[in-house]
Design a protein around this nucleic acid. Structure first.
Lengths: 153, 153
DNA sequence: ATACGTGCAAAGTATTTGCAAACGG
DNA sequence: CCGTTTGCAAATACTTTGCACGTAT
């Protein structure tokens, strides 16, 4: 059914609808952030979001970026990810199928997404055995990207 | 063989030996931090480490705590973990067998460890398929602990 | 004796908060 | 119009750095 064409109902639409349902008004800054995140595939820092919006000519206060991200995170519309660099990153929270995780190069800081259904399955399975009600997860793999690996050799 | 009695060669011993081999001198603050981490099973923040040492009567400058943790992390003797609360946590880096991951309650902030061999396996398997040279990983499961879950109902 | 290790205080970043003005419904 | 959303500036929180002193080898 609808599931197979989930990409048609964009994250942006879903997000705006959820916000409206939850009684939030439509604001320019929020729209701008949602639109930006909708275009991006992988996790951005608050700084990066601010910078890109500014570059787009749609300057938004730094504080607003944080407030908006906090709200969206609470509503589970974006996922906050911490890859261990002391900065939070944010990306669209996608439904289970479209899930990805992150590979972090500890030398150069580069971040790359990857996905693996078997891994998702293992996580779901163990989640069911725990006392917590698990509703989200994230996996971070640390290592050296191919460039840094070669450089080290 | 030795593997089954790995707990006998304590992490503390291994750590001190590695530091010595790497040419580091023995310092009081470093010993205190290593000793503390050896006693603790799960991830602590720099603040918590500082507080406990102070409570033990072995005050150590905050800066030293950070510097020591940084050093130990570099040598892969401790693992830095970020569960998404904007604070870094640190714990002993144990060999593959003794690995655990973390469950975070997003309501009360409580953190609990869990382990699952199947999950480890899935991670190892996918790691081999990637272009990165993966040498570490961590998994964070978010949700509600049983207390918060009941409270919410 | 000579570096390395440590502690204090100051500096940096990332993030949050208070408040007045702008804006949507 | 009224209350939410926004932007600025100030505050806070965590972490890092500079420098003088202590200490292991």
């Amino acid at each position: 059914m609808a599931g197979t064409r989930a990409t048609r109902t964009s994250w942006r639409e879903h997000t705006l609808a959820t916000l409206a349902d939850a009684g939030y008004r439509r604001g320019g800054a929020r729209n701008a952030v949602v639109e930006l995140l909708d275009r991006e595939d992988c996790a951005l820092t608050a700084q990066e979001i601010d910078d890109r919006l500014r570059a787009d000519g749609r300057g938004v206060g730094r504080a607003s970026v944080y407030r908006i991200l906090e709200l969206l995170t609470e509503l589970r519309l974006v996922q906050r990810i911490d890859v261990g660099q002391g900065v939070a990153r944010y990306e669209r929270h996608l439904p289970d199928g479209d899930h990805h995780h992150h590979l972090v190069c500890d030398s150069c800081g580069q971040i790359e997404p990857f996905e693996d259904p078997a891994l998702e399955q293992a996580i779901e399975r163990v989640s069911r055995t725990l006392s917590f009600a698990v509703d989200d997860h994230d996996v971070v793999l640390h290592g050296a990207c191919s460039d840094c690996r070669d450089a080290a050799a």
